[in-house]
């Protein structure tokens, strides 16, 4: 596999220098998703302030594409209102990365899934505290 031909420049950039990697202590929302197809695991932590994603961090065990999609999604949503963030699709993530090899599109599904689940988790936490 020639990585420079297999992955776009953007993907490689995110793998080599991932953004927002790590964890958030006391996150407002967190989600861990796994991909049964290839075994990748992705975890997203979010902080929400005034209806916006104020901070986001990821942890991923997976291939290059899994790392790149996780890193990419954090840069796409940081500082954005939840309403906009919820509209982000797997296609948008793949496009932002300059495309993914067809066999790797499931990695963008994983990233979108993690994001939406982290927001769900945040909403659940909010409704709990209200009660």
């Amino acid at each position: 596999m020639n990585f420079d031909q297999f992955y776009s420049k953007k993907v490689l950039e995110h793998i080599r220098h991932p953004k927002n990697m790590g964890e958030i202590k006391n996150p407002d929302g967190v989600a861990t998703v796994g991909n049964p197809v290839c075994g990748d695991i992705m975890r997203l932590f979010i902080k929400v302030k005034e209806g916006k994603i104020s901070d986001i961090k990821f942890q991923t065990l997976g291939c290059g594409a899994a790392i790149a999609t996780s890193s990419m999604i954090t840069t796409m949503v940081k500082g954005k209102p939840l309403a906009d963030v919820e509209k982000i699709t797997k296609t948008a993530i793949a496009e932002a990365l300059g495309g993914l090899p067809p066999i790797k599109t499931h990695c963008s599904v994983l990233a979108a899934d993690a994001l939406h689940k982290a927001i769900d988790n945040y909403r659940k936490n909010v409704s709990k505290t209200k009660k």
């Binding site: 990585f3 080599r16 065990l61 997976g62 291939c63 899994a66």
Partner: peptide, 14 residues
């Protein structure tokens, strides 16, 4: 443990 093969190949290739 705790590292994926393709990602290792990529960083090794670098």
């Amino acid at each position: 443990e705790g590292a994926e093969g393709e990602a290792m190949l990529l960083l090794l290739s670098d």
